[in-house]
Design a protein around this nucleic acid. Structure first.
Lengths: 325, 325
DNA sequence: CCACTTAGGTCAGCTTCAGTCCGCAATAGC
DNA sequence: GCTATTGCGGACTGAAGCTGACCTAAGTGG
């Protein structure tokens, strides 16, 4: 009975919308008898969704948190919010869940009505991120590639290699991996007949999803490990510029740690009244500036480029201050 | 029939997990005959979920994007990713969807198994945000308050007013409003017998959710407008410190706009080769520093505090550079 | 004590379900 | 053009499920 199933879903939806419903309200909404509601509630319970009920005046039904997440029934606005949230999470603003976010995003985008997709894109473009990451990656592309990995579809795209030469690739993608500041696609290149890792931000234009490919396993089994090995072999990932930035701040580590996100840098005490902040991976332009703005005396430990960059900032800012002060 | 409904949900879940399934695969997974699968697919279609099918070799079923979002069936990791994404979106990192995000978060947290809630919290705490917002708001609290508004529950909490005096409040909450940099709760204060707006970041300790309250409408009907009026009356919101910061950058507006998030500041051309960047609302410490780090000459237009602050940064950074250079 | 609300049994009438068997249709590859 | 694969849908049948109506029980708060 399609009616019954639809009603169960509708019931679930109502219970997610509001906290408390009396049986009669529900019966009214769903246009069935109250007895049927009671039976439906039983059905939901037997499906594992914990519908709590309270008797007496001011009683009613409510959906509680159970062992499993029930199907989420989102309205348009909520769906957009979820999609936008996932996109920012995927773009690396929260450590450790980028890949899961992309997976969830791929799932959502597959079934997202196109009118909502447009709204998501509009909002996403407006974001533009106060982030210190340079390569703004296209979340749509990422989701599409991740979906292809999941589905075992083939993938054709044009790729710009490190030497700036562009080439057409025909691949069977295996996994999408986030290195900590870049996205990589691990795929079997059908033309070169071997595994390759591609930087997702170097994929140009639209990707074309082909038919079903063979299921292959990445050499070694773990795509993340594979990417890591590849990057080490190539000496990439330190981002060319290399060294982490290090700064000594004359303030207690505990205080400084509150102002520095763990994702970007580590804070180590250096005596009782000072600490040393080191970036994870290569430093970026925002780092030293951020350190300068926390309002404590600092000292740059290295590398030289960092010092040079700081010099530039001092010059510009000094000029700006001198201008009218 | 509980079987049938469960199977329909499971089918939906499978179709969301992967792109293509053959009927036999599905029949195998769901432990029914292939004929039943075909009938179930018909049911899904009649429920409005567009199950696409392709005949022939390499054919199969797939779930397409329809006019409505189907119920989302997320696994644990995905649910955590969604929750974390919503929390960051709610905390204001994307303009314009904060309130919707909070609503969606309230919905999700209501049914989120506690083991997942713990994981979300752990991740959320680790975030700590490279953000220029000072008052880090507790997303859990926000979701709880928003849920109370939605459900029309009463709410008791202790509140620290602007004069630092703490008081116990017993309210019937109506709406949660984001002003652009702060969260406000609009509620009917039962003890004072009138409407009040509360800054959510000034709510202390746990809130206690009481029983059902009366449904009331905010004076004027629109909570956002009400908050705005209140803030104007009090002269708040300019954040005490007041004036927006203004900086002139010697670079084309188009170029600068890419580096400045629209949420925090507006970029207006000033001639062809320069532009003026103004913060929305009061400037914060990060602003000038950010401007200095985009690598173009700048000039501070005001206010004076901004110039003073810049001075401080120049001193500290200058000292840091001089130290070893 | 009363009003409200969930809980659940039972019965009758009706509908739907799931499996089985069938022939048909579309598609891709050989 | 042939063939294997895969979806489509009709017909039949016994079993199962659904809904509403009616009733009683029981918990809750004023």
């Amino acid at each position: 009975m399609v009616q019954t199933s639809a009603r169960l879903l509708a019931l679930l939806s109502l219970l997610q919308m509001r906290r408390e419903w009396t049986g009669d309200e529900l019966a009214d909404r769903l246009e069935v008898g109250p007895r049927t509601i009671r039976r439906d509630v039983d059905k939901l319970r037997s499906l594992g969704y914990p519908v709590e009920s309270a008797r007496g005046v001011a009683g009613g039904y409510r959906l509680g948190a159970g062992g499993e997440l029930p199907p989420l029934l989102l309205d348009d606005a909520e769906a957009v919010a979820v999609a936008v949230g996932l996109r920012t999470a995927a773009s690396g603003s929260i450590a450790g869940i980028e890949e899961t976010s992309v997976r969830a995003l791929a799932k959502l985008e597959q079934v997202l009505p196109s009118r909502l997709r447009r709204r998501v894109r509009a909002l996403g473009d407006a974001t533009s991120a106060f982030s210190f990451e340079e390569p703004q990656i296209d979340a749509d592309l990422l989701a599409e590639v991740a979906a292809a990995c999941r589905d075992g579809s083939q993938l054709r795209f044009s790729y710009v290699a490190r030497d700036d030469r562009s080439s057409q690739r025909h691949t069977e993608p295996a996994a999408v991996v986030y290195s900590g500041h870049r996205w990589y696609l691990v795929a079997f290149d059908l033309q070169r007949d071997d595994w390759r890792t591609f930087r997702v931000d170097r994929i140009r234009g639209r990707v074309r999803v082909g038919g079903r490919g063979r299921r292959r396993t990445v050499p070694g089994g773990d795509p993340a490990a594979y990417v890591k090995r590849q990057l080490q072999r190539r000496g990439e990932e330190r981002d060319g510029s290399g060294e982490p930035g290090r700064v000594r701040v004359t303030a207690p580590a505990l205080k400084v740690r509150q102002r520095v996100p763990g994702r970007y840098a580590t804070v180590e005490p250096d005596g009782e009244h000072a600490c040393i902040v080191s970036t994870r991976g290569a430093w970026h332009t925002g780092f030293v500036v951020w350190m300068a703005s926390i309002g404590e005396p600092i000292e740059i430990l290295g590398p030289d480029e960092l010092r040079e960059f700081a010099h530039g900032v001092v010059d510009r800012l000094g000029a700006a201050v001198a201008d009218r002060a």
